[in-house]
Every structure is written in C-alpha cells, then in structure tokens.
C-alpha cells in the first residue's frame, strides 16, 4: 500500500506550461478522484505518477521514496486507460497475462492468477476471444483484470467509464467502489464528471488550469467550497451566484431555496417569475428570473407553473459570500461581516 506525494511539480509541453508548482499528497488506501474541466492537468498528473509522461521539474514520491526517475514498470502501479489500450493482436488471456510473463512468472502461477481475476470480472468464458469480439463493457473489464492481476499498490484510472453507455457506467461505478474496498489499494481516478467524483471519491482533488482549487471529502467540497470555481463545478444545477452592491458575490445552492407565493415579510426573499420548469420525478427544477439575475431552484414541490410570480427565500446560514476575485469569505473577515449585514444579518 502506498501514498503518493507531489513536490513542486511543473510540467510544460513545449512552451505551454500546464502545471506550475503543484504540491499534493494522495493518501494511502483511499479512493482519490482528480476532477476538473478538460485541459486542467489531471491526466498529466496521472501520467506523472505512472512515469509515462514525466514532470519537467519537481519530485514525485511514493511511500516516501523518490520515484521521479524510476522506470514505470518498477513503480508498483497499474493503469486503466480511457480507451482501454488492450493489445489488439492478443486474446483476452494473453492481454491479462502479458505483464506477468514479462516478469518471468512461472506458468502455473500465471494460470491461477488469470483464473482468479478473470473470475472476479466475470470473463472466464471469454478468455480465448480477441478484444475486437468484445463489447465495450467487456473490454473495460479486461483492462481492469489486466491491472488487478499485477496486484499493484496503486491503481491509476484515466476516465475509464467515459466510453460506456449511461446504464453500464452507473453499474461499473458501483463495482469499482466495491473493488477498491476489497483490494484496499490506493486508487487515483481521473474524470471530468463531477457526479462520478462525488459518488466514488474518498477524497476529491478539484483542479482548474493546472492549479488545485480544493481538496477534500465530497461533503467538504460540496458544503464548504473554497471559491467560486468549486461552488459552480460541483452540484447540478450549480450554485447560484449573484452580484452584491459592495462588489462581492452571494451564492446559494438551488436546494437551499424555499419558493413562496406570498412574501413572509422578513429575511432574504426577492421576487421573481418562473421561466422554465423541469419535472425530474422526485424533484423539480425551476428557473426563476429576478431583478438581480436568474437563479435555479431545486424543489420537492412540483406545484409551481411557468409564468407564476414567486419569492425566492434563502435563510442566512445557507448563504456563501465570495470576494471580487472569487475566493470564499469566511467568518472573522471584515468583508464577510459587511456582506452578512447587507443580507440583513446582525
């Protein structure tokens, strides 16, 4: 088992600096998800761990040992690629066993491992087939078996579910979580899908433009965002943001809003008109147009209609304040108190 540590990592492709001075610790035995929009450097980071796209400068440590210049094959890692990268000219068995053969593992031991792990991913009866004869989900499982059979200390996964259809993706999501719990290995998982990040991660590392925006458990990231980027990236629909008179920004989640037909008279309850209504079954999303701007509302009450006049009421304790640069304002800061007073707080 192994934790990973980045120290002052920089990575440039030609003249383009993708990552600058990044420091990060990935905990041992945890499911860590690197998430962010495309081009944010998350895959680059994964490839640095794997050793197939070394950093321009800085150090990468595993278990406290410097692995910056260690050969990829000696790092005790296994990687699952976005398009699986199966060997097209080998059948399923040869694909799984290739890495074991290369380290000179004896045949009986190899065969036993192949049986064990192809059983886990339910491929025992497909071993003789070539990858081109398999479905997307099956290929995915071959890639997983190929990674597991090496019993690595660290699993690296680069958007492994993005090529699957929606239903299979949800199913594989659950299987991966189970797998991680069973193996107890360190999982580093890259995705651009915040739902995947929220549902699978022990720790989320949210990145943008080569910088870490926030690191924390899904609860921390969701309930206590450090900045506007985090607040808007995580959550569907994203957090509502409105300009305030003092140049700061007010934010509140769509589910923090209580829609009222009649204003209660006290507190933050601006009036607006419902523009759109999306009924999703258990909940309903409304888009409300107010003088200050549009907000999304997530409500359990599907009784409102488009065109209706409503009041958008949010309690003070569910409001977030951000400064002009987009950083979160927290209690104790002078600007925080100013914002709070503007919203009618003491």
């Amino acid at each position: 088992m192994a934790g990973i540590e980045f120290r002052n990592i920089c990575k440039a492709f030609g003249l383009v600096k993708v990552i600058e001075n990044l420091n990060l610790t990935i905990e041992d035995g945890k499911f860590t998800v690197l998430v962010g929009p495309s081009g944010c450097g998350k895959t680059t980071l994964l490839r640095i761990i794997a050793g197939i796209g070394p950093a321009t400068s800085g150090e990468c440590l595993m278990d406290g040992k410097d692995i910056t210049d260690l050969e990829p094959a000696r790092r005790g890692i296994a990687m699952v690629f976005q398009n699986y990268a199966l060997y097209p000219t080998m059948n399923v068995r040869e694909n799984i066993v290739f890495g074991l053969k290369n380290i000179g593992m004896p045949r009986e031991k190899r065969d036993a491992l192949v049986r064990e792990y192809s059983g886990i991913v339910d491929l025992l009866d497909q071993l003789h087939k070539s990858p081109s004869q398999l479905s997307g989900g099956q290929r995915q499982r071959v890639a997983l078996a190929r990674a597991m059979v090496k019993t690595p200390k660290v699993f690296l996964m680069d958007e492994p579910l993005s090529n699957l259809d929606a239903k299979l993706r949800v199913q594989m999501r659950g299987e991966l979580i189970e797998l991680q719990k069973r193996l107890g290995a360190t999982f580093v998982y890259v995705t651009h899908d915040q739902v995947e990040a929220m549902s699978m991660a022990d720790t989320i590392v949210l990145m943008n433009k080569g910088r870490i925006q926030q690191k924390g458990s899904p609860e921390e990231i969701y309930d206590d965002p450090n900045n506007v980027f985090t607040a808007q990236f995580i959550g569907t629909p994203p957090m509502n943001l409105l300009e305030m008179e003092n140049g700061c920004r007010l934010g509140y989640r769509p589910e923090a809003i209580a829609l009222m037909r009649v204003s209660p008279g006290a507190g933050y309850c601006p009036a607006g008109e419902i523009v759109t209504r999306e009924m999703l079954g258990a909940e309903t999303h409304y888009k409300v147009r107010m003088a200050q701007g549009d907000v999304m509302v997530k409500s359990l009450d599907k009784g409102f209609a488009a065109g209706e006049r409503v009041h958008v009421c949010v309690p003070l304790e569910r409001m977030f304040f951000f400064d002009a640069q987009g950083d979160r304002l927290r209690p104790g800061q002078r600007e925080y108190d100013a914002c709070r007073r503007l919203m009618g707080g003491a």
Partner: peptide, 26 residues
C-alpha cells in the same frame, strides 16, 4: 495508438518485446 505502447511499458515489456509483440503484429 500510443496508449498501447504505454500499457506495454507499464507491463514491463522491453523495447524488443514491444517491437515483436506489438509493432510487428500490428
């Protein structure tokens, strides 16, 4: 695809092995 070679590198395949097991068949 480059990933196939990367996968092979992670699978401890030497240069010669990558040539004979991946490049040549492909």
């Amino acid at each position: 695809p480059a990933e196939i070679y990367e996968a092979a590198i992670l699978d401890n395949a030497s240069r010669t092995k990558r040539f004979f097991r991946i490049t040549l068949p492909m």
